[in-house]
């Protein structure tokens, strides 16, 4: 199943398959969010935004609208 990172629930894992925002994608890539990487949604702040994910061994936070630019595939 594919969707965006913003659709995941806490504890769910998914694989990054691409980005929809060119500007953000550079920052995300630099932070280690590469296509093919498996990530896990670990926390949601109050009101569900921002979120925190586990990616290549560390925790990265981002806003929901930013997460929506990351396309992911769940198993």
């Amino acid at each position: 199943m594919s969707g965006t990172l913003a659709d995941l629930k806490v504890g769910e894992q998914a694989e990054i398959i691409g980005f929809t925002d060119e500007l953000l994608s550079l920052k995300l890539l630099e932070m280690g969010c590469l296509p093919g990487t498996v990530i896990e949604l670990t926390h949601q702040a109050p009101f569900g935004d921002p979120i925190a994910i586990k990616v290549s061994g560390y925790t990265l936070s981002m806003r929901k609208e930013e997460a929506a630019t990351i396309q992911v595939k769940t198993k």
Binding site: L23, L24, M31, A52, T59, L60, S61, M62, R63, E66
Partner: peptide
């Protein structure tokens, strides 16, 4: 202006 919040949460 677009601001973003892509930030590491250190251990």
């Amino acid at each position: 202006e677009k601001s973003y919040f892509i930030m590491e949460l250190p251990t």
